[in-house]
Amino acid sequence: MQMPIRHHISDQLLMAYSAGQLPEAFSLVMAVHLSMCDECKARLGAFDAVGGAVMDRCDVVAMDTGSLAATLAKLDMPVKGTPSQALPHVQSSLPAPLADYIGGDLSAVKWRSLGAGVRQAILPTDNTASARLLYIPAGKAVPDHSHRGTELTLVLQGAFHDEIDRFGPGDLEISDEDINHQPIAEAGEACICLAATDAPLRFNALVPRLLQPFFRI
């Protein structure tokens, strides 16, 4: 039986997601966790209700003359409701928002090796932050790194632990600046994570740092 999710989205991130203030890569991590977690879904509903109350009470600005008529005339035209940059939907066993970014299942991921069996795949988001999938073989460590910005790591399969805690499927780790940690995948099954960061990671070993420009990590 699946372990319950223990590590959730923080209030700060959830409010920022509700307010529409997160970089695309962070929003993707939020959307995937929310797809797996009823508690956070319920919490998001409350933050959206705060947004609704803010909009309902904000100063009204009169619409232009003829605005209603213009809108009514538009209603019979084809839907323009979907965002201009929406990704096409794909069928997959993964949570829908992730499947849309991969363009299919995990089998469709185009992995690139980072050495020692660790692999990653950058996902196509805007450049305000970056999102990638990480594949860490069972028992192996993610290269030791520290952060300049915020890094979100969501476990999709397997589990990892660091000096402080254990993270299994659906768990979200939020790392801020000054955390210098070395996550290790648990024995048994490879750990696959969705990770997003708003700053380049700094690896503490020389070689990975030299590789950074090539791998966009």
Binding site: G20, M55, P83
Partner: peptide, 20 residues
């Protein structure tokens, strides 16, 4: 509000917002 927020992200920030 959620529709307006999404329109704002699309039209003002020219960005995508992955949805659950």
């Amino acid at each position: 509000f959620t529709i307006a927020r999404n329109r704002r992200i699309d039209a003002l920030r020219k960005s995508r917002r992955p949805e659950p």
